[in-house]
Amino acid sequence: MKAYLGIDIGSISTKGVIIDEENRILASSYLWTEGNPIQAVKNVLNELEKKVKDKDIKILGVGTTGSARKLIGTMLGACSIKNEITAHAIGTLSKYPSVRTILEIGGQDSKIILLEDGIVTDYAMNTLCAAGTGSFLSSQAKRLGIDVKDFGPIALTSKHPTNIAARCTVFAESDLVHKIQMGYEKKDIIAGLCYSVASNYLNNVAKGKKIVGQILFQGGVSKNIGVKKAFEDLLKTEVLVDADGHLMGALGSAILAKKNSKNEVFAFSLKNSKFETAGIECKGCPNHCEVIVIKKDGRKIDSWGNRCEKGSLIH
């Protein structure tokens, strides 16, 4: 059976899926990146291999997306290396052909994608600040001494969410500390945090965008039903969360791999090779370009990051 592999390497988690020719998910894996994308991808490949061991499949294309897409794409010899926005849009469209708005909140970035008749018409990503993203929620969970997974259910029990300044993470945090000292109930504070994430998103990323149904909410934060409810309250419409919502980027890149397949069989044994990366500072001029060199079993396979021809000469 022909199959295609898609990998989405985010800042916090690494997702991998194997799909068949009808875009059905045959196997999936969802693991933490833990600051080491190469190892994370190896782990994901390991898990996927175990899951499809007894099936007779041939992987004919690999697609990567996410912030480490280029590194991993080079490593795996991917036939499609695509940005997150396109990958998410294509992945979601394969399941929800009539989707109009995709809200996505990940570990350290968030984006909104607007579609019309199955085509991306507009998109926006958060600027440099990580306010209102997953990493903000998890750091606040740590402060409150709660596992971030319990955040959603606790938030739902609150009737009077506390008002927490949403504009900036630093201000939100000091506001939060203040509210704790004032004596607010923990569940109200947690619900307030969920609202602050949602309203921050709507005020920053989705500013000036017309949000119409069907709306899908994706990314790691979509697993938090407290934030989902906050979105529904603020938008006053239904917001859908797919059970595979976190896999949409990987699914999209697998579909892109199918489109661009070169019909070369991908071998799982690649994960046993030793991959090394090195950051070299080119000393050719005062610009000091940071050149990334990637080596497989001690042999250089690619490098990038230099702005002129000099950078490619130094190694």
């Binding site: 940005n83 926005i85 396109t86 018409t121 998109y123 440099l128």
Partner: peptide
């Protein structure tokens, strides 16, 4: 420059798909 490349690539995809349609 990664952030700029990502946005630019997505913009290019958007334009290409729109044009094809």
């Amino acid at each position: 420059i990664e952030g700029i490349n990502t946005r630019l690539e997505a913009f290019y995809d958007l334009l290409t798909l729109k044009k094809e349609e």
